[in-house]
Amino acid sequence: MNQPRHFQHPWIQLLILALITLVVIVFVAMSGMLELPLDREMKEGEAVGQTDLPDFREYSAGDSRKTVFFEFLKPIVRAENREIRQSRERIKKLAARLREGDISEEQWDWLRDMARRYRVDLANNTRKGVAEALLRRVDVIPEPLVLVQAAKESAWGTSRFAREGNNLFGQWCFTEGCGMVPARRAPGKSHEVETFESVRVAVASYLRNLNSHPAYAEMREIRARRREAGKPLTAFALAGGLQNYSEQGEKYVSEVRAMIRRNGLEEGARES
């Protein structure tokens, strides 16, 4: 069959070939057969920390162990904070739309799921109220604060709970079999020290705990006030809201702040 004359021009044939190539590339990319740089970065981020805790007893106590401990945790904390930022940005956009009108049911379903995860009251809140409440909860925790609390609560990753359950933050659970029974658990008590499938899961659980549990409402209030005033979120400042993390209360806060200073984290103890 003879082609029409206009298809016989070389430049027309090249254009058609280019269009076909573009369609194939788009199809392959959308099918997941072509890994784009952003996809690769996201996959690498998802893989960070999906492992058990190394045995930090192999390193001599002191600066050597501290350095290895902090360097192991930093990329995990950053990956989790990055996910929190992404969720926060989405909530900010939805909150802005709700100030002007309404959002789709699909968007509300996502917002409602976030509210459940972060213990936001759904029964007594409007959609706008839910979004505003989430903005005070879905927010980053300064990296140095996470590092110092992990070091303090796990004896630099060497405690039994850290080694056997990836529990770096002393988190409890209250369902039988959910974790490890503390050797010194008082009679009549039922709590266990939670076990986690990976360090990444443990860090994510700790961050959500600080961002949602009623015990840390003061920390979240400090963070919100600093955001409203345009001040940086420092580990030193937010530590002031952690009196309820330990029975030691203010003494615990002082010890956390002292560790921030002692480990040279004060200058970098801020998040935006």
Rank of each mutant, 00 (worst) to 15 (best):
R5K: 03
F7S: 05
W11C: 01
L14F: 09
I16P: 03
L17S: 13
L19V: 09
I20L: 14
L22H: 09
V23I: 14
V24I: 14
F27G: 12
S31H: 09
M33A: 14
R40C: 01
M42F: 07
M42L: 14
E44F: 02
V48H: 02
G49K: 04
D52V: 13
F56E: 09
G62F: 00
R65C: 00
F69R: 00
E71L: 01
R78D: 14
A79V: 04
E80Y: 04
E83A: 15
I84Y: 01
I84P: 08
A95P: 00
A95H: 06
L98A: 01
S104R: 10
W108H: 08
D109W: 08
D109F: 11
D109Q: 14
L111M: 14
L111F: 08
R112I: 02
R116D: 13
N124F: 10
G129H: 06
G129I: 06
A131P: 09
L134A: 03
L135W: 07
V138N: 03
V138F: 04
D139R: 09
V140C: 02
P144C: 03
L147F: 05
V148E: 12
A150D: 05
K152P: 00
W156G: 03
F161M: 11
F161D: 09
A162Q: 07
G165Y: 07
G170H: 06
T175G: 09
G177T: 03
C178W: 10
G179F: 01
V181F: 10
R185C: 11
A186D: 15
A186M: 08
H191K: 01
E194T: 12
T195Q: 10
E197W: 07
S198N: 12
V201W: 00
V201R: 12
A202P: 03
A202F: 02
A204T: 06
S205T: 15
N209A: 01
L210P: 04
L210Y: 04
N211A: 15
N211M: 08
H213N: 13
A217N: 07
E218M: 05
E221Y: 03
I222A: 11
A224Y: 09
R225V: 09
G230L: 01
K231W: 06
P232E: 03
A235T: 03
G240F: 01
L242S: 05
Q243V: 11
Y245F: 08
E247Y: 10
Y252E: 05
S254R: 15
E255V: 06
E255W: 01
V256Y: 04
R257I: 10
R257K: 15
R262E: 08
G264W: 07
E267M: 13
G268M: 14
G268K: 12
E271Q: 11
S272H: 15
S272I: 13
S272K: 14
